[in-house]
Design a binder for these strands. Structure first.
Length: 538
DNA sequence: AGTATGTTGCATGT
DNA sequence: ACATGCAACATACT
């Protein structure tokens, strides 16, 4: 039976899968170490086995999580604790453990995603009903989105520069050291843990999480805090590279990543954004000649902060309809084109190479994301950014609700970015940094024998040449599904028309068209200012 | 009302 | 490596 004189302190891991710079975890450890004879400590992660069947997570992402949990357990064991993986749904799990563990304090890191807010509110209520104290800490981002919004007079700043000017007025939080090792008395006794069901709290295995092992690609970016910290150190070793970093000058199609690939670690919180930011600041102090946001490395972290802030203010951030930021654009469904894009069969080698790298490895360069996102939406296929978002959500190791939706809106010129007449060429863009097409040859190997002159445009090869290169279009590799030079011009016109409609709705010109008003407005100003909308303009 | 600005376009020049 | 025209957007600020 449970030792009657012990209460339990619980830290709930969700994101923030690390022991360094983790205020909510540190609070538990510090509280226990003050009175170790009184408290047992249980850091938990809740895994709902039912989630495997419906959530949009591909095999590579499950592997990343599984490796991350394993590593987290190891890190906790070095601090004389361990990870308790509890199976079930939070609303079922907590009432159970509150009682059986005699929980006195629960801590966790705050999140902004709508489903997380709902979940956390439910757990907060359960804790309150059970008389259990809950403490939360904001440590997934450098700045608390709520504070940024408050500082900007209750509204999220919708331009990057404005965002920067707001956060410059805020303090950057202190980065925490590792928590002190847990007093051995504070670890629940082994027999008590095992009595429940031996191995019931163990980390999930790869076999348990990955339903389709055939989808696993090469493990180029293993999950975990240890690997995240190692990767950060490696990225920061060359201080001149750090100081001179300018994102637009990095190649989207190098065979080895031209950027840090810290995004998956930041997404799961294996690496603290606050620590990375602090380390960059220190390097830049020693390197007075350095690049600036938005293109610098600190600028990249600030994009993450920016998207978290705007997303925190809009529950419909991942949808077009009812989204305060998002222009309403009449995208069209076209299942065969979406399918071709999704699986790298558009007939544009650069686009297909990127989509295949994404599927195999779970990470593609940011500019590669631009190229394929523009292609799917306003550039070529005229398919909704929400479709692309879904595919990225499944495949990207760094998939993050706020960043994924924000970037899709950006690229589709639906929000934050509006120069829709700047269209990426699926042929020209990649040539700049890889004129020989090494990247295409790797990820679209059927084209490997094509000469440099037509590796980006295989349709320019004659049938005889196609045979000679061992890859006939329409047989071994698809014909291109659209002619970019034609459709991109038509699509610019469609964008122009869509912008015009949105403008009219915004300024009240289309008040006699109630359907348009409803669909476009959502929460836009026009919805509540119908009275003076007419006199505001014209 | 007018102007400056905006993470990373392309094609065609020098 | 940098300059220009292309057609032309929203936002912030004056």
């Amino acid at each position: 039976m449970m030792d009657a004189k012990h209460a339990t302190l619980v830290h709930w891991f969700r994101k923030g899968l690390r022991v360094h710079d983790n205020p909510a975890l540190s609070q538990i450890f510090a509280t226990a170490n003050v009175a170790p004879e009184k408290f047992h400590v249980r850091p938990i992660f809740i895994l709902d086995p039912g989630i495997l069947d419906w959530i949009q997570v591909g095999a590579n992402r499950w592997r990343f999580l599984q490796q991350t949990l394993d590593d987290l357990d190891q890190q906790l064991r070095q601090l004389h604790s361990r990870l308790f993986v509890v199976r079930g749904q939070p609303v079922d799990v907590f009432p159970r453990i509150f009682k059986s563990w005699r929980v006195e304090l629960l801590t966790f890191e705050t999140d902004i995603e709508p489903y997380a807010l709902k979940r956390d509110a439910a757990v907060q209520k359960l804790a309150k009903d059970a008389g259990i104290k809950v403490d939360t800490h904001c440590s997934h981002t450098i700045y608390n989105p709520e504070l940024v919004i408050a500082k900007n007079m209750g509204k999220a700043p919708i331009t990057y520069q404005k965002f920067l000017s707001v956060v410059e007025q805020l303090k950057t939080p202190k980065v925490l050291e590792l928590p002190e090792k847990l007093s051995k008395k504070a670890l629940p006794p082994k027999d008590e843990v095992e009595q429940h069901d031996e191995a019931a709290y163990d980390c999930p295995t790869l076999q348990q999480l990955v339903k389709r092992p055939e989808d696993l690609g090469p493990n180029k970016f293993p999950g975990g805090e240890t690997e995240g910290l190692r990767r950060m150190k490696e990225s920061l070793r060359d201080e001149l590279w750090v100081a001179r970093f300018e994102k637009p000058n990095t190649a989207p199609n190098s065979l080895e990543p031209s950027t840090t690939v810290l995004s998956p670690y930041l997404k799961f919180g294996c690496l603290s954004a606050r620590l990375f930011h602090q380390q960059l600041k220190e390097i830049l102090k020693r390197q007075p000649k350095h690049s600036q946001p938005p293109v610098s490395l600190i600028g990249q972290i600030m994009w993450r902060e920016f998207y978290y802030t705007v997303a925190a203010a809009e529950p419909n951030f991942d949808r077009m309809v009812g989204n305060v930021y998002c222009l309403q654009i009449p995208w069209q469904e076209q299942a065969d084109h979406l399918e071709a894009w999704t699986h790298g069969r558009t007939g544009y080698p650069f686009i297909d190479a990127i989509m295949r790298q994404l599927r195999q490895e779970g990470w593609i360069h940011h500019l590669a994301r631009h190229a394929v996102a523009c292609f799917l939406t306003r550039g070529d296929l005229w398919i909704s950014w929400e479709e692309g978002q879904r595919v990225f959500e499944q495949l990207l190791l760094d998939q993050d609700w706020a960043l994924n939706a924000g970037n899709w809106m950006w690229l589709s010129a639906s929000a934050f970015f509006h120069q829709y007449f700047r269209v990426y060429s699926p042929v020209a863009f990649g040539k700049k940094t890889d004129p020989q097409g090494h990247y295409i040859r790797k990820y679209v190997p059927e084209l490997a024998k094509y000469p440099n002159g037509c590796i980006y445009e295989p349709w320019k090869a004659t049938l005889a040449d196609q045979r000679a290169y061992g890859c006939v279009l329409g047989v071994d590799y698809p014909h291109r599904i659209v002619k970019h030079e034609l459709v991109h011009k038509e699509n610019i016109k469609r964008m122009s028309a869509a912008y015009k409609v949105n403008r009219e709705v915004r300024t009240g010109k289309a008040e006699d068209s109630p359907e348009a008003d409803r669909s476009v407005a959502g929460k836009r100003k026009v919805a509540k200012s119908t009275g003076n909308a007419a006199k505001r303009k014209r």
